[in-house]
Design a protein around this nucleic acid. Structure first.
Lengths: 258, 258
DNA sequence: GCAAAAGTGTTCATCGTACACCCATGG
DNA sequence: CCATGGGTGTACGATGAACACTTTTGC
């Protein structure tokens, strides 16, 4: 017997793609990929890119295909993990649709968009400049969970490197943490920032390329580094860059008001 | 139009229920609920309890219903969270079945089992005494993920209290950490164990009932406590009970071999 | 030379581990 | 009274935040 079970739902995948892109303020550099739908259901609304899962397709493959067909992005090598599954009855007006949400991370290379089918427009949108209620379906919930997941993961794992090119400076690395966790980290001491990665230096997981970055607008160009560790690796101790510490630092860094 | 989408999969839920029960060795006290199937597909194999999701049912409701119908357990108030969704093509021989796995925690009260339908037998099985390859479907994968999730969560959140009755002693609390993380914690100093919960004492989240436990076999009975904090609360600093520290303690605690 | 950013070393408070000691119970 | 487990306080080493200082670039 091939099948004594009747299909009872539609299974789809949606993908929350995060990247860091140039922006005027550091907190606006953290951006997410959104499409504007051009279909009857939730037409003209912003949504996460997604597709229905094919018969013989894994969720992972479906998620990467969604990015290919909707945005013209080659996500074959990107960091991708399952976020959670959203299946409340009534989340889609067309029937029982269950969506397996994913999070993807990509460095600021490889992010040239090509508009796909069933879509009016496609854009990178700063995560913090997002009125959550404008998203279609329950995609605002997905985005919220994704934001929390990545912020948490930044503290106890090495995913930050997934948002950088192969070779990068410590300033760029710091920019990742600043943009996603807290802008005031940007003004944190270099010495203490380095120490947060001392184990990586000691184990030759974060190795200097032996070359300087091409000089920026001002100041000494930073050393280039390369991360050769496992993608899924975790920190031995969690980062302590909590709000309390940052608040204190802010006060100290503020110009005297008197 | 009501539906222009055709169902393409079967959606089910499976539940990994953890509890702590009396056992000879402390590490065998951590147990998981397993059923022995009595159906054509994967008959006679151990599996996690699960059901198909109904048309107008949330995953959460389906998971709790699975425990009710398969094991006669009233899981309405239990801690329950989504673990992840398993949907590789071919994981079920009967067609494309997508299973949303959950983790549930329950104190050692309320764990009297009643065998449900489609099931040969039902039992609590020590987590560490489990030959993973004997489980049906990809339930071994689910269990592995669940084990990791709970071990991690024990370190950065307060879920441990979900495995205890309303009133408990610090010894019982320690037993949770010992059974799930490492047996050698059992021999850790009481003073340091208490300090791991000092913030809870300070914020009146872990309050003494003002009563002693009924005396055990030997030794001074412990003070009874009650946890009144939020279920989803997290620690401000992660527990540092890592293998290195525990290893050192073991060496020190061993009787001299000479 | 000066401002700005990168990089190095040191000081000091805080936290966690170890340890010493007292209390309450059963046998 | 003694073995066993519960409970309290303290000392010391490790960790991380704050700070002082040097190096390298553009203007």
């Amino acid at each position: 017997m091939e099948s004594n079970l009747n299909a009872n739902a539609v299974v789809a995948v949606d993908v929350v793609v995060f990247t860091l892109r140039p922006a005027t303020s550091i907190e606006d550099r953290w951006q997410v990929l959104l499409v504007r739908r051009d279909e009857p259901a939730f037409g003209n609304k912003l949504a996460l890119p997604g597709v229905l899962v094919r018969a013989e397709e894994t969720f992972d493959a479906a998620a990467r295909r969604a990015l290919q067909t909707k945005a013209g992005l080659d996500a074959r090598d990107w960091y991708l993990e399952q976020l959670g599954t959203f299946g409340n009855p009534g989340r889609d007006t067309r029937g029982r649709v269950v969506s397996v949400a994913h999070v993807a991370l990509v460095g600021s290379d490889d992010v040239d968009l090509v508009r796909g089918s069933g879509i009016q427009s496609i854009d990178w949108v700063p995560v913090r400049a997002l009125p959550a209620e404008t998203l279609a379906f329950d995609h605002a919930d997905m985005l919220r969970v994704a934001i929390n997941r990545i912020q948490a993961k930044l503290r106890y794992s090495w995913v930050a490197f997934q948002l950088l090119p192969d070779e990068f400076t410590l300033s760029q690395l710091r920019a990742v943490y600043s943009a996603i966790l807290d802008p005031s980290l940007q003004r944190l001491n270099t010495s203490n920032f380095r120490k947060a990665f001392s184990t990586l230096f000691a184990t030759d997981t974060l190795v200097p390329v032996g070359q300087r970055a091409t000089a920026g607008k001002v100041g000494r160009p930073g050393e280039l580094y390369r991360f050769v560790g496992p993608v899924g690796g975790t920190r031995t101790r969690e980062l302590r860059w909590d709000s309390a510490a940052r608040f204190r630092h802010n006060l100290a860094a503020l110009p005297d008001a008197s």
